[in-house]
Every structure is written in C-alpha cells, then in structure tokens.
Design a protein around this nucleic acid. Structure first.
Lengths: 334, 334
DNA sequence: TTGAAAGCGATACCAA
DNA sequence: TTGGTATCGCTTTCAA
C-alpha cells in the first residue's frame, strides 16, 4: 500500500496543505514545531511524494528527453554522460532514445516525450531540419535544444555546436604546413551538413596556400571503420598518389591506417593521418591517432545547461554556443 | 493551451468516458461512427493524452529505470542499446543513470525512480548486494531485474548473468592447452564478485592440468588501461617469468600489450594474451585482441524482456538467465 | 500559522 | 452504446 500525503496529514493531525508546504520547503506558513513533527513522520514512514500527481498540477515532471542517433556510436557516450551529470545535479532525470538516423523513429520519440510531459528535450538530430519538431514542441511549450548538427534558418530554442569548419581547417592546415600537397579527404555522408562544413574547412586550408583541390582524392565514407579502409584501398588500387589523409572521424581514420599497413605503407613516415572526434580508441591503437578533439562531454553539459535555463525561465546569454576544436597531435603525424 | 480529453469530448458531443474508450482502443462500448468521428477530431486537433494524468489513475507510467556504473565505460553502450531497443518496442521509455560505483548515488537514483513511479528498474549494481534496493522497491511494488553482477542469496525479481567463471575458464583452458604454464592473471578489483568468479575459472583450468598456481603472477587491476600496463611493467621489472596473460577486461589487456611492446616483447610470439569483454576497440588495435565475448547487447535485451514480463504480470520461465561466454580468437593468440 | 476545497487530466465503475 | 461521477495524489488559492 503506497503511503500518501493524506496519510501523513492524518498521522500528524494537520491538513494536506500543511504537509505539502513542508515537503516543498516553503519557508513560511508553518510553525517550526509542526514542520519538525511532519518531517519526522515523513522520515519514519518512508513517505515519498509522487511526482506524477505533482506533475499533474504543476505541469513539471523534472525529466528531460535526449535523442541521439546511437549510443553505441563512440562519440555519444561522453555526450550523454555530460547531459546526465548536469541534469542529475539539478534534479532532472533523463530519458535516453536512439533514433538510428531514422526520422520516423525520431518523431515517435518526440511524441512519447510529449505524452510523458518532459520538461524539455535535447536533440542531436538525424534530420538536417528540426523545424518540424520545434513547432510541435513549441505548441506544447516544451523547449528544444539542438546539438551538434543543424542548418541555418533552422528553428530551436538554443543550440550547442561544434565549429566543424574550423576543426577541419586546423587539421588540414597542420598538414599543409608540413608540406603536404596531396591530402586525401575522407568525408562523412555528403547529405550531412557537418560533412559540408568540414569539407569547407579542408578547402580553406588548401586554398590559403594555393594548393589545387583534387576531387579524385576527396572520397565519401559513412563514418564506419570499413569505409575508411575501403576508400584507401580503392585509391591505392587506382594508383592515386597522396602523402597525407584527413578523415572525418576516427573510425574511418583507423580504417585508413589499417589499409595502409596492409600495403606496407608506413604511418606516419610515408603518410600522415589526422582523424576527427578524439574517441577513446584513438589512444589505444598503434600508432596512436592524431585527431581533432570534439569536446563531447562539454557539449552535453552545455546542452543540459541551456535546456535547464530555458525550462526554469532564466535568460540564456547566448542562444548559440559554439565549441572550439582542439588539435590533438599524437603518433600518426610527425 | 494544451488540449485535453474534455475538449475532445465537447467537440465530438460525447462524454469523456467515450473518448477514453476510443483512445484506449477498447473494442466494445462505442459505435463505429462515434469512434471514427472521435478519431478524426483527435487527429485534426493533434490531441495527445497525458501519460501523467493517466499514470495517476492506472499506476503505470510506461517508463523504466536503468542504472549502470558509467555509460562511458565501453561495455555499457551496447547493453543500454539492448535495453532501449526492447523497451521501445513495447512502448516503454528509458531513464538512464550513471552510478559511478557510488552507493549513495545509486540510492539517490532508486529514490528518483520511485518518485517518478517507474514501472520497473534494471540495475547493474555497483554494490555486491541489492537487497536494500530490492526491499524498498518491493514495498512500492516495483519489480527489479539485476544484471551482470550479484552474489548468492541476493534478492531480486529476476536476473541476467554472464557465466564469468566459465568465461575465464575457457580462456585459461585455451592457454593451458597451448602449453603455457606461467599465465599471468590480471584481476579486476578484488572486492567485486565477478573478479572472484573469474579467478575461480582461471584456477579451475590450471588445476585440471595440475599446473601450480603462482600467486606472484596473479595481480589486481581496476579495469582501466593504465592498471594493465603498470602491472605488467612491474612484473617485468621484478623479473617474473610468464608466457601468457589473461586479463579480466580488454582495456587492461590492451594496456598489457602496450607494456610488452614497450619492452620489445612480441605478441603473440613470445607472450599470448586473452582479454575479456570483446569491446569494439579490440578489433582496431594491433595485433587484434583475442578475448572472451560478453554478449552485452543480448544481456540488455534479456534484462528488458524479463522486466517487462514482470511488469505486465506474465510468468517468467526462469528467474535467472545465464548467458554463455564465447571465445573470440584473433591475433594475440596463435 | 493552518485548513477546506477546487482542480489537474485522465480512468473506471455503475447507471441509463 | 453511452454518460455521470468518483477517484488518483498532489498543489494552490482563499478563508479562517
């Protein structure tokens, strides 16, 4: 039998209203003695107020929804950790969902969030367009923070982005400054905005030094190990020449390393490589991967911070937070 | 303005009860026309029933709580994915929490789950003892499924375990059959039950072949990369002889490989190594790590399956599911 | 400082 | 096939 506020009220010989004041820490409206007495009874009885009953009247559930594409994708665990840590600190629970880049699934999750009356949602969308979600959430007064991906003119209440263009730029720039002229670019799926941004950064760095952009060594992967491996094997088989590789994520970079190794090409002596993400694995492979660090944990924290401000009606100083990349030089570069 | 069941009732010229019947798909009690009419109005108005109001009366929230130690720990993402996939299929949302092996944090999360009236909880506990949680959850009628870790005599409604003893046994047995007599055992924290189980498996394999157990080469790590690295360096510095290593997780095994490499000891030619977990990384390092596969995704799925059966009052055929290990032989063994 | 009562948005029982 | 109404556990006026 669950024990309710009415039970506590009866046991303490007061009204429900008084008990309510106590469990909500209302400073006034209840004498010291009654408060202490009620507190004691609550403790002894192990009473815990029901958030669902409370939620029905306050319209707050102290829970937030987070949609990512796939927690098994190495970039996300830290991001999720960042969100969870911050949310927990402020008393919020986190609903976690994996969209698998499937817009239908994503919509389903947004609907579930609405039905469950989450206080806010954080979305690392698989769609390049969040206006649809924004509008439906808006109509229910649920704030939306988008992470990581987006397009100009998109709609949301706040965002945390990573400066992808700059990230690619500093990597390519490093390579260019080392004297490389033939730098393979292994892109993510071209349909993604971030892929375009990173390509921009790559091109910027080359153009700055008047290096011709060779379309033949700009190839498309899918962020998986195998695509990095295969693209490099293909280039090698076609006899394309190159002395450096910039891959749009670490997994593809590692695939590239393996491809090179299988052809007895030495890294970094013959080919230098830089990846993107700074995933855990990159420290454990050999040679250790140089990469562009994406502060995933920080992104999670900042996202949660933005969202909770929005939920609690506080002003957010800047709607769009842009996180800076950092180049982590290890052993695949000289 | 949120639209409620009362609004729909008014618009359809029926009572709330009728609308309720429709949104809950009650087969009888409403004529075809009224049903269709109500459905149409619901669609047009974009009405979505509030789970919190519903939860107040039904005592079901269609959400479950999951506590793991740390999502950033490479074993968990797949586990979580398994839970989420299965839960989602049955309409449940998942609260994710990271306990960091901190019993106080764990209790805090359990309390939050109770306040939020989750329908059930899945726990991969940091404590070797779940009775405390079990009792408090029991009193609120919330089923508990424990994963991965436990001790005999512990209390829970169902469990999914991995046969750790057998896992360690098949690894050690493989090594023993290859002729090794000096096999280093890198344990996890000794305070953990799984560490003891794995040590048991290791000892069983050696004893079966009458190989003496040398306490000097049984060392304790903390599941982190560095501990694997350091323990091996220490053994090397002490001049201990060994020809194989069995590490209680992949990260420590990889640390061991790196330690060996730093001393120019060849793997697997001079020392063979087997890890535990079959984490993603193990395929990307060189040489690729041989390891004992823990079916993390399957564990998540089975856990969710057990829990949902419990929640929905279905009989569970066996309270304790034991998942079998599989030896994944790659390049650190011959 | 305290209490009585209305109301949040659904479900569910009992009548009609 | 329908509707009226009590109810779930809490918050929140308003009055005492």
């Amino acid at each position: 039998m669950k024990i309710t506020i009415a039970d506590i009220a009866r046991m303490a010989n007061v009204s429900k209203a008084t008990v309510s004041r106590v469990i909500n820490n209302k400073p006034e409206g209840v004498s010291k003695e009654t408060r202490e007495n009620i507190l004691r009874i609550i403790k002894e009885s192990g009473f815990q107020p029901s958030m669902v009953a409370r939620g029905l009247v306050t319209k707050k559930t102290k829970s937030i929804g987070l949609i990512i594409t796939d927690i098994a994708n190495s970039f996300y665990p830290l991001l999720v950790r960042g969100v969870e840590d911050y949310a927990n600190k402020y008393g919020y629970s986190l609903f976690l969902c994996n969209s698998d880049n499937n817009p239908e699934k994503e919509k389903g999750y947004i609907n579930a969030f609405i039905e469950k009356s989450v206080d806010g949602v954080i979305l690392s969308s698989s769609m390049n367009e969040t206006s649809f979600h924004y509008n439906i959430l808006k109509s229910k007064n649920i704030p939306l923070v988008v992470l990581d991906r987006c397009v100009e003119g998109d709609q949301y209440d706040a965002s945390v982005f990573f400066d992808n263009t700059k990230g690619a730029y500093i990597a390519a720039n490093y390579l260019v400054n080392r004297g490389h002229k033939k730098i393979v670019f292994i892109s993510g799926p071209k349909s993604l905005i971030i892929s375009r941004h990173r390509l921009d950064g790559y091109c910027m760095a080359l153009e700055e030094k008047n290096i011709e952009i060779d379309e033949d060594i700009i190839v498309e992967g899918d962020f998986q190990f195998d695509s990095g491996y295969n693209r490099i094997i293909e280039l090698l088989d076609k006899g394309k020449e190159f002395t450096a590789i910039f891959a749009c994520n670490d997994l593809m970079a590692i695939g590239a390393i393996m491809a090179l190794k299988s052809r007895n090409i030495e890294v970094p002596k013959q080919v230098e490589i830089i990846g993107f993400d700074n995933v855990d694995i990159s420290r454990y492979i050999e040679p250790q991967l140089s990469t562009v660090g994406q502060p995933a944990y920080e992104m999670g924290v900042e996202g949660a911070k933005q969202l909770i401000k929005l939920i609690e009606g506080k002003k957010i100083s800047n709607k769009d937070i842009i996180l800076k990349p950092n180049l982590v030089l290890r052993e695949t570069t000289i």
